[in-house]
C-alpha cells in the first residue's frame, strides 16, 4: 500500500436523525485500487459509497478526492461528480432516453463534446459491454443485467478517475449477475479505481485488492481478500462470514 491516495475519508460522521450511520470512518483508496465494502444490511455501506460523491452530505469529518476536499453544492461539486462514476442498485437509466442517449448525455451536456464524437465513443463503450445492438431501445425494453451494463457504460463515458458501485447486482435475477460482474472484473484488471459495495463474495475474492468490513456504521476491519476470508480478526466479521458462507 504505497500508491498515491485518490479518495481519502477522515473521521467521517453522519446521522440519519438519531441513527449514527457513519461513525468516525477513516478510509483511503489509492489510485488503481479496487476496494470491496461488505457487511450486514444497515451497516452504512451504501451511505459510505454515496458520501464519496456527496449524494449523501456528511455531518462531520472530511472527504478528499484527488487532493481536493469535496465542495458544497454548486458548479465545483458538479465538476467533481463528473470525475467520479456511479453505478446504482436500481440502474437509474433515464427512462425517456434511448440507451445511446443515456450514454451520450453526460459527455455532451457536461463535457460539451461534439455529439458526433460523443456518439462514436458511446457506441464503442456499448460495444465493450456487449449492448451495441440495443443502442436505439429504451431502458424498459432491456433486461436488468443489460440495463446495469449500460449504466456502467454511461459512467465510463465520462472517463472518470474512479467508479463507485452501490450494490450493482442486488436487484438482478441470479442468471444476470455474472454478466455484470464480468464487466466489473475486466475494469478492475485494467486498473480502474473502484469502490464496490456488494454481497458478491466471489467478486470480492478474485477482483478486490482490499476488503473493508463494516458493521453498525463502523469500519471494523480491512484486509486483502485472501487474508480476510481465511482469517477474519473481529468477532463481527467472523459472525457475518459464518452466516453467509455456510449456505
Amino acid at each position: 500500500m504505497t500508491g498515491e491516495a485518490l479518495i481519502v475519508l477522515e473521521n467521517v460522521n453522519k446521522w440519519f436523525g438519531p441513527l449514527h450511520v457513519l461513525q468516525d470512518v477513516d478510509l483511503t483508496v489509492e489510485r488503481g485500487e479496487v476496494v470491496v465494502v461488505i457487511g450486514p444490511s444497515g451497516s452504512g455501506k451504501s451511505t459510505l459509497c454515496r458520501a464519496i460523491n456527496r449524494l449523501e452530505p456528511i455531518d462531520s469529518g472530511s472527504i478528499t478526492f484527488d487532493g481536493t476536499p469535496l465542495p458544497a453544492e454548486g458548479r465545483p461539486l458538479a465538476r467533481l461528480r463528473s470525475e467520479v462514476g456511479m453505478v446504482f442498485q436500481s440502474f437509474n437509466l433515464f427512462a425517456h432516453k434511448t440507451i445511446l442517449q443515456n450514454v451520450m448525455l453526460g459527455p455532451v451536456k457536461v463535457r460539451k463534446e461534439k455529439p458526433a464524437a460523443a456518439r462514436e465513443r458511446a457506441m464503442a463503450l456499448l460495444e465493450r459491454v456487449g449492448i451495441a445492438s440495443q443502442a436505439d431501445k429504451f431502458p424498459a425494453q432491456l433486461s436488468g443485467g443489460q440495463q446495469q451494463r449500460v449504466a456502467i457504460a454511461r459512467a465510463l463515458a465520462m472517463q472518470p478517475k474512479a467508479l463507485l458501485f452501490d450494490e450493482p447486482t442486488s436487484a438482478l435475477d441470479p442468471e444476470m449477475v455474472g454478466e455484470v460482474l464480468d464487466v466489473m472484473t475486466s475494469l478492475a484488471k485494467e486498473g480502474m479505481t473502484m469502490v464496490v459495495v456488494t454481497h458478491e463474495m466471489g467478486f470480492a475474492r478474485h477482483a478486490a485488492k482490499r476488503v473493508v468490513f463494516m458493521a453498525d456504521g463502523q469500519l471494523v476491519e480491512q484486509a486483502p481478500p485472501a487474508e480476510f476470508f481465511a482469517n477474519p480478526k473481529s468477532d463481527r466479521a467472523k459472525d457475518f462470514l459464518s452466516k453467509i458462507l455456510t449456505h
Binding site: 449524494l55 465538476r79 433515464f94 425517456h96 449504466a151
Partner: peptide, 27 residues
C-alpha cells in the same frame, strides 16, 4: 419522477438546471 433519476443525473455532473430540463421535467 423516481428520485434515482435525478440522482443519476447529478452523479454524472449535470447542474441543477440540466437535471431539471434534461431528465426530470421531460418525465
Amino acid at each position: 419522477v423516481a428520485p434515482g433519476q435525478a440522482e443519476a443525473a447529478r452523479a454524472l455532473g449535470l447542474s441543477f438546471g440540466q437535471v431539471l430540463l434534461e431528465v426530470v421535467l421531460p418525465q
